[in-house]
């Protein structure tokens, strides 16, 4: 059977890009949420967690309206000269970042909160600059948090379906990711192809989670006092 690798590479590219972006965007948000005591903190935490409970169709619907040529974001992207986002790889990245945001922020926030203010205070008595403190103290100490965030974002983006179906347009090599390809095969009664991709997904997802648990388990054990 002629196996089509394109959806596989595309999915990995999407998940990889999304994960990198989310670690960059999610870290400051999580740090701020872990440290701040402002009255609206819980409201913002709730906003970040929204994609966990919202059906992907809600996100897909709003994205379709907002990203359209006459929608607010669509007008902005056009003014910036990027064109419109739906039916493009960039559009999927944008959607995935929103969709997987809680999977980056929450593990990081938990890790930062678990650190407490103490290590930073100690570091600052040693005259470490805030940036230095973050890079050399916080990041190494919060390593399991970063690892969990990265793996969850990656895995969650790979499993994304509803949003992609709504704003993707099923374009091979651009927006036809694995989950959509499987759906397409099933709908077209091409069960052989569907089985291959589906079984691959199952094995991959299991391996990813298994690795995460093993690594995190070892890390926790080795750092037990």
């Amino acid at each position: 059977m002629d196996f089509d690798w394109q959806p596989v590479w595309l999915t990995l590219k999407l998940a990889g890009t999304t994960t990198v972006l989310l670690l960059i965007i999610g870290t400051p948000i999580a740090w701020w949420l872990a440290r701040t005591h402002v009255w609206y903190k819980q409201a913002l935490a709730a906003v970040v967690a929204l994609p966990l409970v919202l059906p992907p169709t809600v996100l897909g619907f709003y994205l379709l309206i907002m990203l359209a040529p006459d929608g607010p974001v669509g007008q902005l992207t056009q003014a910036m000269g990027i064109g419109t986002l739906p039916f493009t790889f960039e559009g999927l990245v944008f959607a995935s970042v929103l969709y997987s945001l809680p999977f980056a922020v929450q593990p990081l926030q938990n890790a930062f909160e678990a650190l407490g203010p103490r290590p930073m205070e100690v570091a600052s008595t040693l005259r470490a600059s805030p940036w230095d403190r973050f890079l050399t103290v916080v990041i190494p100490l919060a390593r399991p948090g970063f690892l969990t965030a990265a793996v969850l974002c990656f895995a969650h983006t790979i499993g994304e379906f509803g949003v992609v179906l709504m704003i993707g347009g099923n374009i091979p090599g651009e927006t036809k990711v694995l989950s959509v390809a499987i759906y397409d095969h099933v709908e077209s009664l091409e069960y052989g192809q569907a089985h291959l991709l589906a079984a691959g997904m199952l094995a991959f997802s299991f391996l990813v989670l298994m690795t995460l648990y093993l690594v995190n388990g070892r890390y926790t054990r080795s750092h037990r006092p």
């Binding site: 379709l64 359209a68 039916f87 347009g169």
Partner: peptide, 21 residues
């Protein structure tokens, strides 16, 4: 390369009706 496929004709219509295509 510029074709976008709707899951059904209803979704196709919606792609055009929202101005995205």
């Amino acid at each position: 390369p510029r074709l976008v496929r709707g899951d059904s004709i209803a979704q196709t219509f919606q792609f055009v009706a929202t101005g995205n295509a």
